[in-house]
Design a protein around this nucleic acid. Structure first.
Length: 559
RNA sequence: GCGCCCGUAGCUCAGUGGAUAGAGCACCGGCCUCCGGAGCCGGGUGCGGAGGUUCGAUUCCUCUCGGGCGUACCA
């Protein structure tokens, strides 16, 4: 399978074997094996792999790390690892392994054999749900939704590649307070446009998009709503608007490369009685008490700062109550991991949500909440306030139109979710070399161009099994080594929920390619070298394309 | 006040407790008779500050300064 993993396992074996022998001979004293790593050193001069086992062992062995490393070295049975060329002890006590480079020669066949699956791990029968964006269906999608979309979808892709069964879910907030206000706003706009002189609700949705929706309603329903009672009228306009908004959201996210498996309606949680049920269940378990006419959840039991209202004095459930029901529903659907991508403005909700999950009897570590810092929008160097209500900011569909899906997605994911992001609209609108996505896409297009040239020249691309890779030089082997890192890069991304790793990885890989390209010709007189380099190019291309695929960015054949 | 996130090069940002902390942009200088110059090569006295834990701290802990967000019977 994964050749890197095989080598790591081999080296781990070698070390453990040597440690045990040293202990048996009384040269080394230790109770248990430390949790050591076998990593690819940053600096090539430190070998292909390195281990920190000697340093971690120092305390319990009561020996200097370098002494321990020497003891391990002396007991090492190199026959266990035929690829091993030499071992060095370096620095504070690192054990550096230098391998015969021929292990890399097996890689191209693996990559080409797996094709668009290269980088993926075998399925391991674990279900994970990623819920992201879940924007209120009362307005346009803003930059925060866009960032959440790029992050969530990239994570979902990475998790799927890492072997999980992944479900993408959008939670539709189609119930609750903001929907009432939405309905009142729509109704007021309708009546106003029909000539009535009435006040617009003070906290209503004042954006132009509401007016546009109402104009559509008037187109379809004319003045027929004037004779209705207010309740019936509000019902009609809000249902109309929700349909329109959800449709808009679906279309826009689709254009952003995002397709959900499940669109989950908040309303159904109320309708099916699940909200009442979950509050009752928590009450029976003793996590709910009554005060000032409201029902409270004892979130302080779980480390929250204060308890939280679940049923208001007016008898209506809060958003939190609905969310508890929602999360029980998620776990009942059998997910091993439940991942929510939330804006940082919801961070106060994390502790109590986890508390509620614990109270319901689930292990809270199965709920992972990825907090994403908010996006600040700049235009002409000036901060643009984002307000859904007034609609004065750039929406996702406008962004896609201006900078394109590829650039936008790459840009959002490049940054770590927990760092605040300044989005400079003027810069993003510049289609050009400032944007790193072009650097990567260009690498892919260039490789395709080489193949077009090869075809013109009538160059034959040999089967990978018949190619001799020993003609490749250090720069090319470095490229292969980077390609070999890809599967692990994905599993780390899936474990640590750090989608920016994929962007960094593919930038690095493209950089190695461009450097290679400028120093060596693929098509040349030396046929054996040409054969090997053509395969190397295809191997590189597949990896770039797969990485871009995870990011939701296209890999163009020409630009 | 309290809580969460962030302070890394002139700017925007990477960096799963490891060795000499990186990239892009900007700035300066090189590279096309040759597969796409949207490229390559070279040029850098930077981890906000102070303690602590550790063989080893940009990374973990405490305090402190600065920025953002939250602190509703809103979502």
């Amino acid at each position: 399978m994964d050749p890197i993993q095989q080598l790591r396992d081999g080296l781990r074996n070698l070390l453990v074997n040597s440690l045990e022998k040293s202990r048996a001979q009384g040269r080394l004293n230790f109770e248990s094996l430390p949790d050591f790593v076998i990593e690819v050193p940053r600096d090539e001069g430190h070998g292909d792999f390195a281990s920190n086992v000697a340093m971690l062992m120092a305390k319990q062995a009561r020996m200097a790390p370098r002494k321990i490393a020497e003891a391990i070295y002396e007991q090492m049975d190199k026959n266990l690892m035929p690829e091993l060329e030499r071992v060095e002890i370096a620095g504070a006590g690192f054990i550096n392994f230098f391998l015969d480079q021929s292990w890399l020669y097996k890689l191209p066949a693996l990559v080409i054999g797996m094709g668009d699956r290269y980088g993926s791990s075998p399925k391991h029968n674990q279900k994970v749900q990623v819920e992201f964006v879940s924007a209120n269906p009362t307005g346009n999608l803003h930059m925060g939704n866009a960032r959440g979309g790029a992050i969530g979808d990239t994570l979902a892709n990475a998790l799927a590649f890492a072997g999980y069964d992944v479900e993408r879910e959008f939670y539709i907030n189609d119930a609750g307070n903001q929907i009432e206000v939405f309905a009142q706003s729509l109704e007021a706009r309708y009546l106003q446009l029909m000539g009535a002189k009435i006040e617009f609700p003070e906290n209503g949705y004042a954006g132009q998009d509401v007016v546009d929706t109402v104009k559509n309603i008037i187109r379809d329903y004319k003045d027929s709503l004037l004779v209705m009672g207010s309740e019936e009228r509000q019902q009609l306009v809000v249902n109309y608007a929700l349909r329109e908004k959800i449709d808009y959201i679906k279309t826009t996210l689709n254009n952003f490369g995002i397709n959900y498996d499940v669109w989950f309606s908040e309303k159904t949680l109320h309708a099916s009685g699940q909200v009442d049920k979950v509050i009752n269940d928590l009450r029976e378990k003793g996590f709910i008490y009554e005060e000032d006419g409201a029902l409270w959840f004892k979130s302080t039991l779980f480390g929250d700062e204060k308890d939280e209202v679940v049923i208001r004095a007016n008898g209506l459930p809060t958003y939190f109550a609905t969310d508890i029901a929602y999360h029980r529903d998620k776990f009942r659907r059998g997910f091993d991991r439940v991942i929510n991508v939330w804006g940082a403005d919801h961070h106060g909700h994390v502790a109590r949500m986890k508390g509620a999950v614990t109270a319901l009897g689930y292990d809270e570590s199965r709920l992972e909440i990825l907090l994403m810092q908010l996006v600040r929008l700049y235009r002409g160097g000036i901060l643009v306030r984002m307000s859904k209500r007034t609609g004065t900011t750039v929406s996702l569909d406008e962004l896609i139109e201006e900078v394109g899906k590829d650039a936008a997605r790459f840009f959002f994911v490049m940054r770590s979710p927990d760092s605040q992001m300044d989005f400079d609209l003027d810069l993003a609108k510049e289609k050009g070399q400032d944007n790193p996505v072009y650097y990567v896409q260009y690498a892919h297009a260039r490789i395709q161009s080489i193949f077009r040239q090869a075809a013109v020249a009538g160059a034959e691309i040999k089967k990978v099994e018949k190619v001799d890779f020993s003609v490749l030089g250090p720069e090319e082997l470095q490229l292969l080594r980077k390609i070999a890192d890809f599967p692990e890069e994905i599993t780390i991304t899936a474990r640590t929920l750090a989608p920016q790793r994929i962007a960094r990885y593919v930038l690095d890989l493209a950089g190695l390619f461009h450097s290679f390209y400028n120093h060596h010709r693929v098509l040349n007189e030396n046929k054996a070298l040409q054969d090997a380099r053509l395969i190397l190019m295809e191997t590189t291309r597949i990896t770039i394309k797969n990485a871009l695929g995870i990011l939701g960015v296209s890999a163009p054949d020409q630009m």
